[in-house]
């Protein structure tokens, strides 16, 4: 076991995935409480075409450029969701399903086209669908740490604004906290977290890391700051144990193991909370 911890690459993966999972848990609480969990899902699927287009245009595998592409595509998806939602009578669920499949389909299509080109490097891109934590390098870890610091700052400086935004948006408007600004801050924070996370967890499963920790934490506490901290801890635990487990068991993929552990935590939390509730009754 100790041997493993001495390997630099293993440490990079361990730190990267754990820190990413913690920040995803923390920022995800907001959309869980706003009952908009699926927006994160739609947006994370939408990052795929962004990454593939960056690769096709620039023929690079630079993860910072991928991050930029992912963010731009995510913003596009979000604007499309808003456009449909504000101008038609289509339900938000339906809109999200349309957006998700449209962008993901586009991404898969582009991926297939690009894989027919002669550049062999696209092998790396396919890993963004299901994630490949082993490819995390030092630069990725630095980006993950920076995004986590950004998430931390959002909570430290805008804690009261976030609370009023979630609880009562009209009161936020009347108090001078323009919800548009809050939407943008939370969207961008979620997007950068998603974008640095897809490399390890993949576009399909990354939203689980935004939703699972928040849902679990809400079963344990009724205080917002405790929920946020717990959510980060649950994320971190699943990231940490997921990486450890997948490095011990042969052929166990890291990303899906992390998500699987997160799901177990969520189910157990819900069950225990139901049991407690019944007892109180």
């Amino acid at each position: 076991m100790l041997e493993l911890f001495k390997q630099y690459n293993f440490l990079l993966v361990l730190v990267g995935v754990t820190v990413f999972s913690a920040s995803a848990g923390a920022i995800g609480v907001i959309s869980v409480l706003r009952r908009q969990s699926l927006i994160g899902d739609a947006i994370s699927h939408a990052t795929l075409p962004g990454i593939v287009i960056v690769f096709m245009l620039l023929q690079t595998k630079n993860s910072f450029l991928f991050l930029v592409g992912a963010i731009i595509a995510g913003i596009f998806a979000y604007l499309l969701i808003l456009l449909i939602n504000n101008n038609t009578k289509i339900d938000l669920d339906t809109t999200l399903a349309i957006t998700l499949t449209f962008f993901f389909g586009l991404g898969m299509m582009l991926l297939s086209i690009s894989s027919k080109s002669k550049n062999a490097a696209q092998a790396g891109i396919q890993e963004y669908i299901f994630g490949s934590a082993a490819t995390i390098n030092q630069m990725d870890v630095i980006m993950i740490v920076i995004t986590s610091i950004i998430v931390l700052c959002v909570y430290l400086f805008l804690y009261k604004e976030i609370k009023i935004f979630i609880f009562d948006e009209l009161q936020a408007i009347l108090s001078g906290f323009e919800p548009k600004i809050m939407h943008i801050i939370i969207l961008i924070s979620s997007l950068i977290v998603i974008s640095v996370g897809i490399q390890s967890v993949g576009v399909i499963l990354v939203s689980a890391m935004l939703i699972g920790p928040g849902v679990s934490a809400l079963q344990w506490s009724k205080k917002f700051h405790v929920v946020v901290i717990l959510s980060a801890i649950f994320g971190a635990i699943s990231g940490f144990t997921g990486v450890l487990l997948s490095s011990y068991v042969d052929k166990l993929p890291t990303g899906s193991t992390v998500v699987f552990i997160m799901s177990i935590i969520t189910v157990v939390s819900i069950l225990i909370s139901r049991l407690k509730f019944k007892k109180e009754k």
């Binding site: 409480l33 108090s175 405790v226």
Partner: peptide
């Protein structure tokens, strides 16, 4: 409003002060 938001009575009343605090 969202009554499932995890917070206390005092905290909600305090929100009335936010307008005087600014960002």
């Amino acid at each position: 409003v969202n009554w499932d938001f995890p917070t206390t009575v005092l905290d909600v009343v305090l929100m009335g002060r936010y307008v005087h605090l600014g960002w």
